[in-house]
Design a protein around this nucleic acid. Structure first.
Lengths: 206, 206, 206, 206
DNA sequence: AATGAATGAGGCTTCATTCAT
DNA sequence: TATGAATGAAGCCTCATTCAT
């Protein structure tokens, strides 16, 4: 039976995870030592191990956290009735998030996790899970719009969802490599592209 | 006078780099030890250091190599007269490459390098350089097509190039995380999207 | 707040330095591996690095320690009123120290440091500093005795101090190379030489 | 049967030994790698091993060479009839040699060999042998002068020889640590000291 | 005789994790 | 619960020496 409250345990975990995010985003997963996380969290080596089994578990926990944020962004975006507005919101949310420094930090961490997933089955599973749900949400929204006659029908809704996500991920990369990358400009062009793509009339010609 | 030919030296370097690609792609940059590369290359520890200054230099050399392949794919694709065909080729080349197992291996390595770039200035510079040229090639091709009246003109050619690259990178990620990802399907939808985007007639309505 | 006392930290440092002295004296600075020091100190590899930055720092610390002992020997020797007695004490202290096994070990280490100083600027600085103070103490004592009329005056007190130190160092070498070297005999002759050198009456003839 | 002349072999050995002297004097015995000697000698790795069994043998050969020079200096010095002149010559030769840059290089090497002798039995034997002969020459000269009534007799000639050598060695050290050390000044004082020491009249008072 | 690429044991150091307090 | 000193396996790299040419 724990002597401290669950709230305390939660705060400690948060403290550790935040320190890890900071370090991982800055130096990468492998280049960050437990020592770094210990220092950043202002806790002791032993304390970390009271709350996490080890470095890998911290990484996994962070990988797991990532997709809450993604899902949230997408759900907020898709909460609109009209598809065009809906998608506009989605892109807008995404855009705003990329300009936010705290978010940028997490995006950098996200990229490290993308690479980690390639050789860490647990992280891979979490990344996949974090990808599946957004893709489902998007493709369902697209399919619904198609069913309602709001979008051209000759498009594979899943492939379309993949494309949107790919564009998101691709922009995250370009932005991470060069923070002068003009997101506004990218987003405007992306919206134009998706508009022309999804609109019924152009569908007639596809 | 050198005891062995320059060709021999080149082969040795290749041998080491290929071993490194194999290891890095499988286990990531940091999880791969020099011991791994030594074993995979079937050379001795000392021999590696006759050809490279250390692990970092091997990573940098591989990061440098990456963009030759990218440029090659894009140049081959853009070598067509007609923009639509040209872009079709580009996408086709890219698609074929992703189905190639050897290429898949390098794409995995590429993702590790993307993450490495975030905390390794030398790799970042190489990644950027490898990104700049393809973007230039693409945006120039787009601008030329616009000037010739083959494409709608209300699109920022650089942003459009960024979007195409982002889609490429995003697909690489999805494919790396799940090799059942249907590239054919993705590519067909992407072509439809870009066609509708760039085509003059839809431009009139955009 | 530190978990262990400062005394504990000091003891650990001492433990490591003593192990290093043992190894360095026996096998030389470069031939002694960290592995050797680790084994001799009965600590673990990691523990050493909690107390010293590396092998070089251990060497530097030992070079720094040396001159405390030298200064101590000289100050004890010069604490007498009468120059002749004073110098006699000095030589006696020195002589006794050379017969002490623990001191012999440190003298061997000292010789290794003399060589190290030739290609290690930090050690050189420490050796010089360790040499300057004894020379100053000696030359001042000599100069004072000259001013008081107790010693002939036509001698450069600094050169005289250098000579005394040179004799000391030279004897340390001969003793290190052959522990059958008769120190008693050497010291007696050295005292006779310095007596005849410094004494007023002989000064009249010099 | 060798294909090249003995002279050629001798030259090659000299070439290697000179390169080794250069490197050892500059960086010490252990910090000098065979690679360094190879580069300095402008020969190949394999060539070195045609002429020496390995690094240790080069060191030993150099330790062996040292005492020829010492003996030469002493014999030249002692070749005089008159003891005082004789000793003056000895000191003078020694002094001149210390101002010679080439000699300084060898003196630095010598110091490294002094340390090496402490943990290398072969070098120790050579150093001892190189020390024994000069000491014998000196003590014999002193004893002869004593027998002839030219020097006071109440001095152990061996101890006196040891003292002279100790002073030499000690000056070599001080000069190696600080090349601004005034040798002229030291030598003058040393001559004064030995004069007053050895002279008959002062002997009456000793 | 000469070359220099290759070997592989061994050196220094880091770091995830544990455990006595 | 909390601490942080301690552990020791494992990482990167060097270097004396060998051997095919």
């Amino acid at each position: 039976m724990p002597k401290v409250s669950e709230a305390h345990r939660h705060n400690r975990r948060r403290q550790i995870l935040d320190a890890a995010i900071e370090c991982f985003a800055r130096h990468g997963l492998q280049r960050t030592s437990m020592e770094d996380i210990i220092r950043e969290s202002r806790l002791s080596a032993g304390a970390i191990y009271l709350y996490f089994q080890g470095k890998d578990q911290i990484i996994e926990r962070l990988a797991d956290e990532r997709h809450y944020r993604e899902k949230q962004l997408i759900q907020q975006g898709l909460a609109q009735q009209d598809w065009t507005k809906s998608f506009g919101h989605l892109v807008r949310n995404f855009y705003v998030s990329l300009e936010n420094p705290a978010e940028q930090k997490e995006r950098r961490l996200g990229i490290h996790l993308w690479a980690e997933a390639l050789c860490n089955p647990k992280v891979l599973r979490l990344i996949r899970r974090g990808l599946d749900q957004p893709r489902e949400l998007l493709s369902q929204a697209i399919a619904e719009a198609q069913a309602d006659g709001r979008l051209r029908k000759d498009i594979d809704s899943i492939a379309a969802a993949r494309i949107l996500i790919a564009m998101f991920h691709g922009l995250i990369l370009q932005r991470a490599w060069d923070d002068r990358t003009d997101i506004e400009c990218f987003v405007k062009a992306a919206q134009a592209m998706t508009d022309s793509y999804f609109s019924i009339s152009s569908g007639g010609r596809g």
